[in-house]
């Protein structure tokens, strides 16, 4: 039976991961297999994990303000390595940056006012057809 696997990643020098943990647990509760990277990972490490774990989606969380550089780097490395994956992100992200991140390949960016349900609905909608059983 195909399980949908999601990597929740914390790139860069950002020690705040309560949100990433809550979302990881929430996704587990609705049937996703979630791999959590832990904090302070480099884009290279995150991409290596995404490849080895053969995940269907990568969700990046960043609260440090460095999201433009870090998210872009992850997206570029994934493409370079030939890993096709759904990208989404979240954190303290100014409105004006959301479009920029979407151009980097992030399908959706969640902000502190997003509910957990919105994130689950987003993934369910993306993967509904992929789950066979």
């Amino acid at each position: 039976m195909k399980k949908i696997k999601v990597l929740i990643g914390k790139p860069g020098l950002d020690g705040h991961d309560r949100g990433a943990k809550v979302i990881s647990k929430a996704l587990m509760e609705v049937g996703y297999e979630v791999i959590y990277t832990g904090i302070r990972r480099t884009p290279e490490e995150i991409v290596k994990m995404a490849i080895e774990e053969d995940v269907d989606a990568v969700g990046l969380s960043c609260l440090s303000g460095a999201h433009l550089d870090l998210f872009k780097k992850v997206s570029e490395l994934l493409k370079e390595k030939g890993k096709d994956v759904l990208l989404f992100g979240g954190g303290i992200i100014p409105k004006e940056d959301i479009e920029i991140l979407k151009n980097y390949g992030f399908k959706k960016i969640f902000t502190p006012d997003s509910s957990i349900k919105e994130i689950i609905d987003f993934l369910d909608n993306e993967f509904k057809s992929k789950v066979t059983n």
């Binding site: 399980k3 990881s24 996704l27 297999e33 979630v34 791999i35 959590y36 832990g38 994990m49 080895e52």
Partner: peptide, 23 residues
């Protein structure tokens, strides 16, 4: 739910390209 929270590899700090890790 049948889902899982796979939290082992967050302890593994190795950056060695010769190591393949799978949860």
């Amino acid at each position: 739910s049948g889902g899982a929270f796979l939290g082992d590899r967050l302890r593994l700090k190795t950056k060695n390209e010769n190591v393949f890790i799978r949860s």
